[in-house]
Amino acid sequence: MFIVLLKFSNNKSQAGQYLSGHKDWINQGFDDGVFLLVGSLQPSSGGGILAHNTSLAELQERVNADPFVAEDIVAAEIIEVAPSSADARLQFLMN
């Protein structure tokens, strides 16, 4: 499982130009069964993604394809988490 942090860079003001492509990229992540949750980092500092069903290399490739990353709107950090226990509702993450 992975946590992806997308923190705004100095080019944050250009985000509007790439927002549609960024949203398409997010939707593709959900369609592919990789993204579990996407949301904003508060207060307005970027975004966060919970991902699974992928390898680190595949996720890095996917993240690099995000228009926000490619255009330096955000800087991406990927954190790998090896779950050792989970609430019953999240047992599917233990595989």
Score class of each variant (00 low, 15 high):
Ile3Asp: 01
Ile3Ala: 08
Ile3Tyr: 02
Leu5Gly: 03
Leu6Asn: 01
Phe8Cys: 03
Phe8Thr: 00
Asn11Leu: 01
Ser13His: 14
Gly16Leu: 07
Gly21Cys: 09
Gly21Val: 05
Gly21Ile: 09
His22Pro: 06
Trp25Tyr: 06
Trp25Glu: 00
Ile26Val: 15
Ile26Met: 10
Asn27Leu: 11
Asn27Ser: 15
Asn27Glu: 15
Gln28Cys: 01
Gly29Arg: 05
Gly29Ser: 13
Phe30Arg: 11
Asp31Lys: 11
Asp31Gly: 02
Asp32Gln: 15
Asp32Ala: 15
Gly33Tyr: 05
Val34Asn: 05
Leu37Ala: 14
Leu37Ser: 12
Leu37Trp: 06
Gly39Thr: 03
Ser40Met: 04
Leu41Thr: 11
Leu41Glu: 05
Leu41Cys: 12
Ser44Met: 12
Ser45Arg: 15
Gly46Leu: 01
Gly47Thr: 03
Gly48Leu: 14
Leu50Phe: 08
Leu50Cys: 03
Leu50Met: 04
His52Glu: 12
Asn53Val: 10
Ser55Asn: 04
Leu56Tyr: 09
Leu56Phe: 08
Glu58Ala: 14
Glu58Thr: 04
Leu59Asn: 02
Gln60Val: 01
Glu61Cys: 06
Asp66Ile: 09
Asp66Cys: 15
Pro67Met: 13
Phe68Thr: 06
Glu71Lys: 15
Asp72Glu: 13
Val74Arg: 01
Ala75Trp: 03
Ala76Met: 03
Glu77Lys: 08
Glu80Tyr: 10
Ala82Met: 08
Ala82Asn: 13
Pro83Cys: 12
Asp87His: 13
Asp87Lys: 07
Arg89Gln: 13
Met94Thr: 09
Met94Asp: 10
Asn95Asp: 15
